[in-house]
């Protein structure tokens, strides 16, 4: 096995090209290493992007927050810019695994592994992020929903493509977000359910709402029916509860031997969605 330490996005792409499909990008590596050791993955070339200066850091670019693909979950969770605009993203990225995992793992990795209950991915999902991907031919800009093709399956070909950054619009004053996790244990555990939302709320009316939830489908799943229903409505207790109930229309949770049966998840999802909305309302 060959290990390439890329100093830039350009170098990383070149290393992938040289590997002719036998390479893979590694950032945190928290999942890749385990999979390699378990024989669940083979790679002849690992392309490490953690030292690529142009892929690191978190900054404001005009009206967007730009999170480099090599920025760790810890860096995001404690970043002052992120904290100022999206405390919910701090909470979500700060809920993944453990501090040690967050010190090496990245938000992009949390999306690319395509775990449907990934806390980092969930908390960024309703923020309308744009995922910037460099390929051998150029660049493409994907929505978060474009990132998943199946349970645990990413749309990204990590032997050919490189996420360079995530761009998140800076919220308007009347836009707030939230993230809630239903957990058996704080650290070292995937949630039973998680949900996140962002709402534009003007003159006591929902202008629009984006609600995502998991694990109830492929990747962070939009609660489309609830979002639609909320439009123009006030965030009252009854309306938030109703939105929670409507979220079930878009949810297809499975039973997990540890993290809750389908029945329990169906029971709890409306409550979690309601609590996400309550948390948003409390911010106005």
């Amino acid at each position: 096995m060959k290990y390439v330490i890329a100093q830039s996005a350009e170098e990383a792409l070149k290393a992938l090209k040289d590997a002719e499909g036998r390479g893979t990008i590694i950032a945190g590596g928290t999942d890749v290493m385990v999979e390699l050791h378990e024989g669940e993955r083979t790679a002849e070339v690992l392309v490490d992007i953690t030292k690529a200066a142009d892929l690191r850091g978190i900054r404001i670019d005009g009206k967007e927050i730009v999170i480099g693909s090599a920025a760790t979950l810890s860096e995001i969770a404690s970043d002052p810019i992120v904290r100022q605009y999206y405390p919910s993203l701090c909470k979500g990225t700060g809920s993944v695994g453990s501090l040690q995992i967050r010190n090496t793992g990245t938000l992009v990795g949390n999306i690319v592994t395509a775990q449907p209950a990934a806390d980092g991915a969930m908390s960024v999902a309703p923020l309308n992020p744009v995922i910037v991907v460099r390929t051998f031919d150029g660049e493409k800009r994907l929505k978060i929903s474009d990132m998943y093709v199946g349970f645990g399956k990413t749309a990204l070909d990590t032997s050919k493509e490189l996420v360079t950054e995530i761009r998140i619009p800076v919220p308007e004053k009347d836009e707030k977000a939230s993230f809630v996790r239903l957990e058996l244990r704080k650290s070292l555990s995937l949630p039973m359910l998680n949900a996140a939302a962002m709402v534009k709320y003007s003159e006591n009316k929902v202008v629009w709402a984006r609600i995502t939830m998991g694990p109830v489908g492929v990747g962070p799943t939009r609660a489309a029916a609830a979002e639609e229903w909320l439009k123009g409505k006030e965030l009252t207790e009854e309306n938030m509860a109703e939105a929670g109930r409507l979220a079930l229309k878009d949810a297809n949770p499975r039973s997990n031997p540890l993290r809750g049966s389908r029945e329990y998840r169906e029971h709890s999802l409306p409550i979690i969605i309601r609590r996400v909305l309550e948390d948003i309302k409390a911010q106005f």
Partner: peptide
């Protein structure tokens, strides 16, 4: 409140590691 070895028919116990066995951590 949390710990349990869960048997899945045909597959055996689900609890293959600390990630799948909810013993208490310091923050809980």
């Amino acid at each position: 409140v949390r710990e349990e070895m869960t048997y899945v028919d045909g597959k055996g116990f689900y609890n293959k590691g600390f990630h799948k066995y909810m013993l208490p951590t310091a923050d809980d």
